[in-house]
């Protein structure tokens, strides 16, 4: 069957060429046009300070999106990443401010928690066989609740008053804050550097190593992957562990940026992260999760939000635009390249 569809594909007409061009570069062209439009509308948009703030705005959910790329690659999804990041914010504040412990310990505890939650997700999906969406949705609610428990539902900042009327003894350590607010060599914001580092690691793992190949194989045909000896269950659990750990890292950077443990942090992180990863499908028309596309997707969302703010669009319109763009991008890649499966 499919061989004929593909022979159809071989038709080398002009329209075919444009179609392929559109699938490959269409998204980047739209992005460039939007960039030009915003710059024309308000020259402030083009200032380096603003461009950096676009990049910075993207970092947190870009990091989360890079993590969730793994579940997406194995044809799953992790909805708990937003709440894992929020938990990370609260726990790092709790460890440093309330327990007066070191930033390193805070980081280790957060990463361990993220990995643990990912492992539980993986267990629920692989062993208990709960569909990935439901398992991670449940986990999302669970973690959202858990993050409020240590502080009794209060935000934790420097000198916060605790449940017993005691003033919290500790504070965020300087090097911890450096992760969110500092600049490497005074130029590159640390958060951006972390994002790039995560992107490089994800790219290397997914595109260049044996593991990455197996991850993609599992996503495309899990049974075939199993029958060549791949430990499919282990890989699937690992995908969620990675996603949870990276989400925790995103939370750490967020905590470092705001410098306090805010109960309401992480609100839109989930949707922005998953939106970035899904828009990443459209970038270069590869129709599969890929780290480069994810980063571009995250920057795109951040640029869009930044530009719309400059045009004084109210926040509720922004969400609407964001959603429309996501749907349009997906319709574009999947609709135009129907014949490829």
């Amino acid at each position: 069957m499919s061989s004929y569809i593909d022979q159809d594909k071989m038709i080398q007409s002009k329209s075919e060429f444009f179609k392929r061009f559109a699938i490959r570069y269409g998204f980047l062209i739209v992005m460039a046009m939007l960039f030009a439009f915003f710059s024309w509308w308000n020259p402030v948009f083009l200032r380096p300070v603003n461009l950096f703030s676009i990049l910075l705005g993207a970092t947190i959910y870009a990091i989360l999106a890079l993590g969730v790329t793994f579940p997406l690659v194995i044809d799953g999804l992790d909805l708990s990443i937003g709440s894992v990041a929020a938990l990370s914010v609260m726990i790092s504040a709790y460890v440093m401010v309330v327990l007066d412990a070191s930033g390193v310990l805070a980081i280790l505890v957060c990463l361990a928690l993220g990995a643990g939650i990912g492992a539980i997700n993986g267990f629920l999906i692989v062993r208990v066989k709960i569909p990935d969406l439901l398992a991670t949705l449940g986990m999302m609610f669970l973690v959202q609740g858990v993050q409020l428990i240590p502080s009794g539902g209060r935000s934790i900042g420097r000198g916060a008053v605790l449940a017993g009327g005691v003033v919290a003894p500790g504070r965020f350590s300087d090097y911890f804050l450096f992760l969110g607010q500092g600049r490497i060599f005074g130029i590159v914001p640390t958060a951006v550097a972390i994002m790039i580092a995560v992107a490089i690691v994800v790219f290397v793992v997914l595109s260049l190593t044996r593991w990455g190949r197996v991850f993609y194989a599992i996503g495309s045909n899990a049974e075939a992957a199993r029958l060549v000896g791949a430990k499919v269950d282990t890989y699937r659990v690992m995908a969620y562990v990675i996603s949870g750990t990276v989400a925790a890292l995103g939370g750490i950077v967020l905590a470092a940026r705001v410098g306090r443990g805010d109960v309401s942090s992480g609100g839109t992180l989930l949707m922005d992260a998953i939106g970035s990863a899904l828009i990443g499908f459209a970038v270069l028309g590869v129709r599969r999760p890929n780290p480069f596309g994810t980063i571009v997707g995250a920057i795109f969302i951040s640029m869009l939000m930044n530009g719309l703010s400059m045009m004084n669009m109210p926040y509720y319109v922004q969400d609407f635009v964001k959603g429309s763009v996501l749907v349009a991008a997906l319709a574009f890649t999947f609709g135009l390249s129907k014949g490829r499966t």
């Binding site: 190949r213 197996v214 495309s220 045909n221 075939a224 992957a225 029958l227």
Partner: peptide, 21 residues
């Protein structure tokens, strides 16, 4: 189709899958 072919992969990736090592 069910048990062996990885539809997302090209010929090379399909062929080398068991022995990437």
């Amino acid at each position: 189709a069910e048990n062996a072919v990885i539809p997302l992969f090209n010929i090379r990736q399909n062929m080398t899958l068991p022995f990437l090592g």
